[in-house]
Amino acid sequence: MDFIFIAQQSFSAALGVNTIIFALAAIGLNMHFGYTGLLNFGQAGFLAVGAYSVATLVVSFNFPLWAALLAGILNSVILALLLGLPTLRLRADYLAIVTIAAAEIIRQIARSATFNKYLGGSDGITGKFGKDFFALNPFKSGLNTPFLRYNGNDLWVVVTGWALVIVVLFVMWLLVRSPWGRVLKSIREDEEAVRSLGKNVYLYKMQSLIIGGIVGSFAGFVYALSRQSVQPDNYGTALTFFAYTVLILGGAARVFAPIAGSIIFWFLLVFIEQMLRQAVSAGYIPEWLIGVNQVGQIRFMLVGLGLMMLMIFRPQGIFGDRKELALDARA
């Protein structure tokens, strides 16, 4: 077994493009769910809006990339308003139902034959819509070390992606420790009490939904640009639930949780996959037990098992405070 290769693959994934995408998606969810208590089950919709804004506007409408990115942010704000205006006055569960449906509506519209010309149907959009971005790439040769290996374009995405994550995280950190963040946390605990103290709860929930949605669209930008293509089925409900997994793995309502959760999630996923693959091809695992083609599915089973163990033995996540979790029982 080639342990150097396994390590290289696993560490590259741990700091790689997918980790950045899911960290950003989970940072947005942390604002919604972790701090404000908004059950947004449609984060994939915000990613889709970000990704499709970039791809469609550049490829079909010849927007410059920077304008498409700005439009993507604007579109995610519009989506947040559309979701929030009718539901934020209602109980939390309504938002969950509406968001999960809205994300699916967005995916179905993206893959519909009607808009094939602009959105590419079920094939999505492939094109050089990121060429303005990659033109700025100073790392033409990529990186090849025993632990990390990226090609030139991936390295550029990883470097800019992490820079974006750090900036977003810093702003989040500033926001959640401010009196504004205190109002959000209070809304999570008890909306009525916050109203009785003179705060406009609806306005704060809307602001939270918008900010978390914008961060979600950032994840969509990274998703689209890193692959130079968008495919509608990448933005299904599984994406949202992986983002929740990442968030809860790290510990909800902790600023660094999404990053830690995402790194661990992707490290485990790739590490287990590579270990199994090598073990099968080296004959340590007999073919009748696990075939090479089954590794991709079995890694999810094992990661799922690991997450179950985590929830049993450390339900508060990596950064969470168990004492605080116990308080949730409203003793």
């Binding site: 500033l174 401010s178 009196p179 504004w180």
Partner: peptide, 9 residues
């Protein structure tokens, strides 16, 4: 003042 999103950060 810090409860306004524009000033919170």
């Amino acid at each position: 003042k810090g409860e306004s999103i524009l000033r919170a950060a």
